[in-house]
Design a protein around this nucleic acid. Structure first.
Lengths: 229, 229
DNA sequence: CGAGCGATTGAAAAGACTCAACCACCGTGG
DNA sequence: CCACGGTGGTTGAGTCTTTTCAATCGCTCG
């Protein structure tokens, strides 16, 4: 559910710009973009878009975190990606011309800008640097997913948890990881109960610390070791 | 190991062109391409490229089948994709600028054309239709891989085998599926022994038939049912 | 203070893997 | 032409991981 519409986020001064695909737009393009996008606040657990629907544009995350997931057997979520500020969400389906294969839902309060399909394609056509960044982004992600497939197919849940925690560390930076046990399980690809048990083991081994739902990583090196096998 | 170099495959008349990314090149571009690529025969079990090395160009498969795989724990292969004639292999790493994350190896005798990096980028720059097809291809594949990740994480091996056989049916068309048990297991993401046992179950249930190593699908509808859960 | 949801624990069952042995086919060389 | 060796395919048994189901706990919000 959308809370309110606002125009007070500037693309030129967006604090997320530097690590975003929009960083290579020139000032004219940024100004134009600023005129032609809409920004909104979202509460926790709001959807940006739903699997099966058709994309009308892309979402540029200014603040907060968004989980991107599919639903598998019996509707169980598989979290494919957790987006952080600066990321543009939902352009894959737009580029392939298909309906969304994934859903996107906020896991915190978020500030999100919407860029229409027309505007996005205009940017892609007119700015080859932007376009190349998009292509590079797609390619990079495609490579990462090959690795994820292998991990899911071959690694034990324990190893996958180690991998997942390291990925989350990249996403959360210095902040503690703040996810429900269920989301964490759906990210790692396991049952919630199994996740809780393994988390407890890691805690007992001094690798992590937990504060209610928050997880703090104490020994990354140990996680790397566990993840590798 | 490369068997011999030849120039006798014409891009304009390539029987694989119609279902290839090169189908939207104009005749001038095709002629140019034809002058600037090299074609080779490969024996079964030859590598096109190896994980970790740097791409120098892309491979256009004219005849035969190629498995694309990563190596996970203890070097076990995970087959990410099986390419059939018409497909261009290995452009992902070239576009992202990284070394290959996967290896490509022939699983039959193959005829393969090599297009250099320069040539490929030239085509991408000059022909926006070609470029868009590449972008679309990347996006489509990215979506499919999200589904694969979910399948690997959530589906039982039995379900995954059903999914895998249906995918292989698309690839092999009317021909019987002709893979070693090990490759089949590495495609489905399981141990060879488990794969064999499940294959036997499917056979007993009249869903498939086997002729030594070849697998023939008798009841696709049943497989769809099993794949869904 | 009580309802309700998320987190946690325990016990049992199921699914898949590993290991070891054996079989079957195929090409080679005597 | 046949014995031999090797590779890939198959089977069996035992083990381990992970899931499932059921029950309990504990925080948070009205």
């Amino acid at each position: 559910m959308l809370i309110k519409t606002y125009k007070n986020i500037s693309c030129s001064n967006c604090q997320s710009k530097s690590h975003s695909l929009i960083e290579n737009l020139n000032s004219e393009e940024l100004n134009n973009l600023e005129q032609n996008r809409g920004c909104s606040f979202y509460k926790k657990s709001d959807y940006l878009f739903l699997e099966g629907s058709y994309p009308r544009g892309v979402y540029c995350l200014n603040h907060g975190k968004v989980k991107v997931f599919t639903r598998g057997n019996e509707g169980k979520e598989q979290i494919i990606h957790i987006a952080k500020p600066g990321e543009i969400i939902g352009f894959r389906a737009m580029l392939s011309g298909d309906p969304y294969l994934v859903s996107a839902e906020t896991i915190e309060e978020c500030a999100v800008c919407f860029i229409s399909k027309d505007e996005f394609f205009k940017m892609m056509d007119s700015n080859s640097e932007f376009r190349n960044d998009i292509i590079k982004g797609l390619s990079k992600e495609l490579g990462e997913r090959a690795v994820s497939i292998t991990d899911m197919a071959q690694k034990s849940v324990r190893e996958r948890l180690a991998v997942g925690l390291l990925q989350l560390k990249e996403i959360y930076g210095t902040e503690p990881i703040n996810l429900s046990r269920e989301d964490l399980a759906n990210f790692v690809g396991t049952a919630t109960e199994t996740l809780i048990r393994l988390l407890k083991e890691f805690k007992n081994e001094g690798i992590i610390e937990t504060q209610t739902r928050k997880v703090i990583i104490l020994k990354s090196d140990k996680l790397h070791q566990l993840a590798g096998k």
